[in-house]
Computed example of a mutant assay.
Amino acid sequence: MEYQHIECYLEGAVGVLVLNRPAQLNSFNEAMHREVAAILKDWDRNPEVRAVLLTGKGRGFCAGQDLGDRAVNSDQAAPDLGQSIDRYYNPLISRITGMAKPVICAVNGVAAGAGANIALACDIVIAGRSASFIQAFCRLGLVPDSGGTWFLPRLVGRARAMALALQGDKVSAEQARDMGMIWQVVDDEALQSVAMQQAQHLARQPTYGLGLIKQAIHRAADNSLAEQLELERDLQRLAGRSEDYREGVDAFLNKRTPEYKGR
């Protein structure tokens, strides 16, 4: 499949996905949604891809929805925005959070609207120092989607989440890191190399177990302690039967570097 709106390639065991509509700050239209969905579906099933790195081309990460696709006037019926969420944004967030391998996001500029929440859906978020995050929905009379109302309160607390969603203020990369929204801030010129180093490191790890860790942490938000303890037991049982666990123990006992396969 040839891609018009994204760039994608493998660097070792890391799948690199670059949103590539820089003139539109990498905002999503339907064609880009379809391309992103296709490559993530492929990489999710491909055992050779052990980690995914998501970033944007140019001066922005992603400005969310391309409003040029949504322009309406008084003579037109109101668009069904829920249909777009059902068809594109919700499956995208579910794919990122449900992938049984790490997804690292390198935020290289503004991340606004759905673009901010797509970044927050990733497992590890590294931002360039000039990056920013904006819950821009309120400026158009809309509700944060793409998981925004779920991620924000869990990452930064209810008070901050409410203010960010109601006011639509720009949050700098340093502010986002300090309030627990993202993991790390680096100089702009180092962003891609640092993010790739992180992705390559994770790709060498026991990624079967990393996928189970993702599952446990995502489910913890809605589980009681008793339910979470049972989930940990069940996932640990699966982890203990993996080839990666056997390799890790054998490498430890024989004082050698493990060679994990992700299974």
Rank of each mutant, 00 (worst) to 15 (best):
D42G: 03
R87P: 00
P79R: 06
A161K: 00
C62Q: 01
S224Q: 02
G211F: 08
T55I: 05
A127F: 07
I39L: 09
E227I: 01
V16I: 12
R246S: 11
Y260F: 15
D75P: 00
R87Q: 14
F61D: 05
G168F: 03
G248T: 05
L191F: 12
A226R: 12
D178M: 10
E35H: 06
C8M: 14
A106F: 02
S84F: 05
Q197K: 10
A165S: 14
G68K: 08
M196G: 06
D123L: 08
G147Q: 03
R237M: 11
G113Y: 06
V52T: 01
G240R: 11
L17R: 02
I118Q: 04
A165Y: 08
L155N: 08
R87G: 00
E189K: 12
G262M: 02
A216G: 05
P153L: 02
L10G: 06
N108S: 10
A121M: 00
R237K: 09
W150Y: 15
H5A: 13
G209E: 04
I134C: 06
V18T: 07
A13S: 14
E189R: 14
A226P: 01
A13R: 10
M196T: 03
C8D: 11
E227P: 01
A226L: 10
L225W: 05
S242C: 07
V143A: 08
G248E: 08
P153W: 00
D42Q: 14
P22D: 08
N46C: 11
E259H: 12
L54Y: 02
Q198Y: 10
L166Q: 12
P153K: 03
G109V: 06
A127D: 04
A195E: 06
A226G: 09
Y208W: 03
L19N: 04
L19Q: 08
N117C: 10
V185W: 01
D187E: 15
L92S: 07
V185F: 09
D86M: 09
A159V: 15
V185Q: 09
R160K: 14
L19P: 01
I118W: 00
L92E: 10
I85P: 00
Q236Y: 07
S224R: 01
A159M: 12
A114P: 00
K41M: 04
A221Y: 13
G15E: 06
Y89L: 13
D42P: 00
A114C: 08
A119N: 00
R45K: 15
M181K: 01
D222N: 07
L142W: 13
L212W: 00
T257G: 03
C8Q: 15
N29P: 03
M179A: 06
K214R: 10
E189Y: 13
S224Y: 05
A37C: 02
E174R: 14
